[in-house]
Amino acid sequence: MKSLVCLKQVPDTETQIKVNPEGTGIVTEGIKHIINPYDEFSVEEALRLKEKFKEGEVVILAIGPDRATESIRTALAMGADRGIHVNDPAVNTADPFAVAQALAAAAKDVQYDVIFCGHRAIDDDFCEVGAMLAEFLGLPQVTLVTKVEVAADKKSAILERDIEGGKETVEVPLPCVVTSQKGLNEPRYASLPGIMKAKKKPIDAKNAAALGVSVEAKLQSKEYSMPPERKAGKKIEGLEPPDAAKQVVQALRNEAKII
């Protein structure tokens, strides 16, 4: 069972994001980076499939600057076999269209039964790359997946996905692109031997030219701003529960006019 896992390095969820004075982006100094949490589910699922089939390969494909290597190594330490690191200033900060094109180009040299992507990256929150990658490769996409069962012949899979107000079970021919949703699994921690082994696993570096992609910007951003500061409102302390409840319910009707 061969899986290609697309991985993005993102700021830790604990990060207090600050916009730079020019409003052209965020302040990047001092940010700690992690594997995008949804991509971690992808890595785990790919490892479980390889273990279940007792054969195969898990390849990690990441786009990003030098620091993205750490995240690839973390995935290798979890048990993935090798990495591909697309590191090119033109692609590293590109929009989802160019990112998906670069991923599609890199995927052409890899054998896979399934491509995993996180259903979104928790930095730019576009939710686009997985579906675009599928379209560029001519593959079906199944998004927001919470359960994966691959048929013994690896020609199809039964997947469970989130839909509004419920779940949908679909059957999809392989290969396909799966986007991972929370609930898919609980990712493992890298073990110490895993970390040692990961140091010797290969990471293949590529740039846009090597992939034959030319990046043409499709989107442009401006005027980054912080959310309006919310001020603490009325805090009711020391009142009996019935009085406190009454005060708030009345305020919601008469002051906030919301109910």
Binding site: P11, I26, L219
Partner: peptide, 10 residues
């Protein structure tokens, strides 16, 4: 962006 930690125009 960043789940609402900041905003931008695109």
């Amino acid at each position: 962006m960043y789940a609402g930690k900041c905003y931008a125009k695109w």
